[in-house]
């Protein structure tokens, strides 16, 4: 499976825009990714090991939070995993 690295995380992934893994599940793929690029870990996970709140993970076009098996979902070599930091903002209510 190919993992697509977003622009802001590429400096921590050897400047690569995508990384191939041969892991059987999403969780194992993330393990492989952070084992080969340890600097990515703190950008993706809390100290407790949970995916950070502003990090969205999409298996193909599906948010993994809504997959029945979530990070334990099995993956195929043709799947893609996209790491998408949140995009939001705006004005405070009284500004």
């Amino acid at each position: 499976m190919k993992i697509f690295i977003p622009t802001p995380l590429r400096p921590f992934a050897g400047s690569q825009s995508s990384i191939e893994t041969d892991a059987p599940t999403i969780a194992a793929a993330l393990d492989q990714l952070t084992s080969s690029h340890p600097d990515l870990k703190k950008h993706l996970f809390t100290p407790e090991g949970k995916v950070r709140a502003f990090v969205n993970l999409y298996l193909n076009d599906e948010d993994i939070r809504y997959l029945p098996e979530k990070e334990a979902t099995a993956v195929r070599p043709t799947d893609t995993l996209s790491i998408i930091p949140s995009i939001a903002g705006g004005l405070p209510p009284r500004q």
Binding site: T7, P8, S86, G89, G90, L91
Partner: peptide
């Protein structure tokens, strides 16, 4: 994005919810 009726300055909300470092 746009700020309707407000200056073109980043807000605290913009900063808090911005996560694309280097962009």
């Amino acid at each position: 994005h746009s700020h309707p009726g407000h200056p073109a300055r980043w807000s605290l909300t913009d900063l808090a919810e911005a996560h694309w470092l280097g962009c």
